Simulated assay, not measured.
Amino acid sequence: MKKIVSTLISTLAVGTVASSACLALAADKPNKVSIGYFLEWPTANQVAQVNDTYSKEMGVEVEWHAFDSGTAMSAAMASGGVDMAYSQGLVPFTIAVSKGLPITMVGIAVSYAENDNCVVGKDAHITSANAKQLEGKNIAVPFGTVSHYKMLKTLKQLEVNSKKVHLLDMAPADGAAALARGDVSMACGWGGALRRMKQYGEVLMSAKEQEAAGIRSFDVISVNNSFAKQYPELVSEFLQVTNDANKAYKESPQTQQPIIAKASGLSLTDTNQILDLFTFPVKDEQVSPYWMGGGVQTFTKEVADFFVQQKQIPKALADYSATIDASYFKNVH
């Protein structure tokens, strides 16, 4: 009997310790994790979003909140309204950290060089080979955007003097209309406006050529600094699910696209047109020198300095390395 009682007490003690450990483990996670994202912006991870894979793998309720701008995402993270932002634009991120907002880039959501470009009108008969003929011509471009930055870098790459072209500050939709009318020789922009521009001309420089020259467009995965410090494992687990979704999309895009279309709120045709212009980097690419292994840090500094010159922000940081952390993605397998 003594042995039975002793064994029972030991078992209860072990059970109490185990229960205490489970409670402690549960206390190490928040009640829920809030993620900011964009509607009508189809991405590979939306399959995991629809299937609630994030909640299952992270072991905590994951809530998704739609935003209409990357600036709003920054403000929500700074106030603690959301913990992470998926596919925040590089420019809003750069402006936010330049102003001292407590957020950090932990991954690359999507690269879309093909979805942001400049188109030369057919009647201009100008290509990258004779781009210098753009000097003296009208160019429509939305000032203070990555399109503006990319255009100036492209002109420099093609040895065109940007001071000798006539730049018109026009939203992409207006630029597309101006190109159609023949009011401008070249227009720059993204998305649907870019697709309309291509009806009236050809891109000055392909996305592959731009990327080879270090000119790129991409959105980031960012996180509230306090959340990342308190729950680093959850950040890496979020990235793990995202990485798995990106891999699955690469292996079988056609089976994923209808799900993504439904999640994004777009038609399948519109979704596929956009997805055709997107690439979703996986772990080895994420931590490579081209991306968060150094390239993004350098590019972010260049973008920030450009926006200071354009008086979009008062000053840039001396170095952006402290605002970009690849360590969370390095824990992904």
Rank of each mutant, 00 (worst) to 15 (best):
Met1Gln: 11
Thr7Asp: 04
Leu8Val: 15
Ile9Tyr: 06
Thr11Tyr: 10
Val14Phe: 13
Thr16His: 05
Ser19Tyr: 11
Cys22Asp: 12
Ala26Gln: 14
Asp28Thr: 15
Asp28Gly: 15
Val33Leu: 13
Phe38Tyr: 15
Leu39Phe: 09
Pro42Arg: 02
Thr43Pro: 06
Thr43Arg: 12
Thr43Phe: 10
Ala44Phe: 04
Val47Ile: 10
Gln49Lys: 13
Asn51Asp: 11
Asp52Gly: 03
Asp52Pro: 10
Tyr54Phe: 15
Lys56Asp: 12
Met58Trp: 03
Met58Val: 06
Gly59Glu: 01
Glu61Lys: 15
Val62Glu: 01
Glu63Val: 14
Glu63Gly: 04
Phe67Gly: 11
Gly70His: 04
Met73Lys: 02
Ser74Trp: 07
Ala76Leu: 05
Ser79Gln: 10
Gly81Leu: 08
Val82Asp: 07
Gly89Arg: 07
Val91Gly: 00
Pro92Asp: 00
Ile95Phe: 14
Leu101His: 03
Pro102Arg: 00
Ile103Lys: 01
Gly107Met: 00
Tyr112Thr: 03
Asn117Lys: 07
Asn117Thr: 02
Asn117Asp: 00
Val120Pro: 07
Gly121Tyr: 04
Ala124Glu: 14
His125Glu: 11
Ile126Tyr: 00
Ile126Cys: 04
Glu135Pro: 14
Gly136Ser: 08
Lys137Cys: 04
Ile139Asn: 03
Tyr149Pro: 13
Met151His: 03
Lys153Arg: 14
Lys153Leu: 11
Thr154Ala: 13
Thr154Val: 15
Leu155Arg: 03
Leu155Gln: 02
Glu159His: 15
Asn161Gln: 01
Ser162Met: 09
Asp169Pro: 12
Ala173Gly: 11
Gly175Met: 09
Ala177Tyr: 02
Ala177Pro: 09
Leu179Gly: 00
Ala187Glu: 03
Cys188Tyr: 09
Cys188Phe: 10
Trp190Pro: 08
Arg195Asp: 12
Lys198Gly: 11
Tyr200Ala: 09
Val203His: 01
Ala207Thr: 07
Lys208Asp: 15
Glu209Gly: 14
Glu209Ile: 11
Gln210Arg: 13
Glu211Asp: 12
Gly214Phe: 00
Ile215Cys: 00
Arg216Gly: 05
Ile221Val: 15
Ser222Trp: 01
Val223Thr: 06
Asn225Ser: 13
Phe227Lys: 06
Lys229Met: 04
Tyr231Cys: 10
Tyr231Ile: 10
Val235Asn: 01
Ser236Ala: 08
Glu237Gln: 15
Leu239Phe: 07
Leu239Thr: 01
Asn243Met: 05
Asn243Phe: 10
Asn243Trp: 06
Asn243Cys: 05
Lys247Gln: 06
Ala248His: 06
Ala248Val: 12
Ser252Pro: 08
Thr255Leu: 08
Thr255Asp: 04
Gln257Ala: 07
Pro258Arg: 01
Ile259Cys: 06
Ile260Gln: 02
Lys262Gly: 09
Gly265Trp: 00
Gly265Tyr: 03
Gly265Val: 08
Leu266Gly: 00
Ser267Arg: 06
Leu268Arg: 12
Asp270Gln: 10
Asp270Ala: 14
Asp276Phe: 09
Pro281Cys: 01
Pro281Arg: 04
Pro281Gln: 01
Lys283Asn: 06
Glu285Thr: 08
Gln286His: 05
Gln297Glu: 04
Phe299Cys: 05
Val303Cys: 05
Val308Phe: 07
Gln310Pro: 11
Ile313Phe: 09
Ser321Asp: 02
Ala322Phe: 05
Ala322Asn: 07
Asp325Ala: 09
Phe329Ala: 12
Phe329Ile: 14
Lys330Cys: 02
Val332Trp: 03
